[in-house]
C-alpha cells in the first residue's frame, strides 16, 4: 500500500467524485445523438471512474464493485445488444442496421432510427467500460493482501 492510497484527502475526494464521474459518463452516452458524445467516450469515462476507485481503494474493493463474472457478462452482452439490434432490422424486412424499418412508430422512421441509435450506443458503452476495467485489473501488478502487509512489517521489526 503506497502513500497515495493512505492519504485521507485522496480517499475522501475519490469517494465523493466517483458517482459524479459515472453520472457524467451516462450523460455522455445518452447525449451522443444530439451533441458531442457517444458510446466509446462515455464507456471510457465510466470505466475510468471505477479504475480510479480501484487504484485508491485497492483491487479487492474494486472487484466488489465490478466482479470478474459481471465483467464477462457485460463485455459480451454489449456486443450482443449491437448485433441483435442489427439483426432485428433484418427480421422486419430491411437491411442489416437499417434502423428505419423497425415498426415502433410507423409514421416516423427518423425517430425510430434515433431510438435504435441510442440503444446501439448503450451497447457500445457497456462493452467498452467492461473491457477497460478488465484491462486494468489484468495488466496492473498483483497486490499484496492488505491483511498480510502489517503482519510482515511487525515480523521485520
Amino acid at each position: 500500500m503506497s502513500g497515495i492510497q493512505e492519504s485521507i484527502v485522496i480517499r475522501t475526494v475519490v469517494r465523493i467524485m466517483v458517482p459524479f464521474i459515472q453520472i457524467f459518463a451516462l450523460y455522455v452516452i445518452m447525449h451522443g445523438a444530439s451533441g458531442p458524445g457517444g458510446g466509446f467516450q462515455g464507456g471510457v469515462i465510466f470505466g475510468a471512474g471505477i479504475i480510479l476507485y480501484a487504484m485508491i481503494y485497492g483491487h479487492k474493493e474494486g472487484k466488489q464493485r465490478m466482479s470478474d463474472k459481471l465483467n464477462r457478462i457485460l463485455s459480451s452482452s454489449g456486443v450482443a445488444i449491437f448485433a441483435v439490434t442489427g439483426i432485428s432490422c433484418l427480421v422486419f424486412g430491411g437491411m442489416f442496421l437499417q434502423y428505419g424499418v423497425v415498426p415502433l412508430l410507423p409514421d416516423n422512421p427518423a425517430v425510430v432510427s434515433r431510438l435504435l441509435i441510442d440503444v446501439v450506443e448503450i451497447g457500445i458503452g457497456i462493452t467498452v467500460l467492461a473491457v477497460m476495467i478488465s484491462l486494468f485489473f489484468d495488466v496492473s501488478p498483483p497486490e499484496t493482501d492488505e491483511e498480510e502487509l502489517p503482519a510482515s512489517e511487525e515480523a521485520g521489526q
Partner: peptide, 11 residues
C-alpha cells in the same frame, strides 16, 4: 438528420 434522426453528424 432526416435519414438518421440524430443531430450529431458524427454519431
Amino acid at each position: 438528420e432526416t435519414e438518421s434522426g440524430v443531430g450529431n453528424i458524427v454519431t
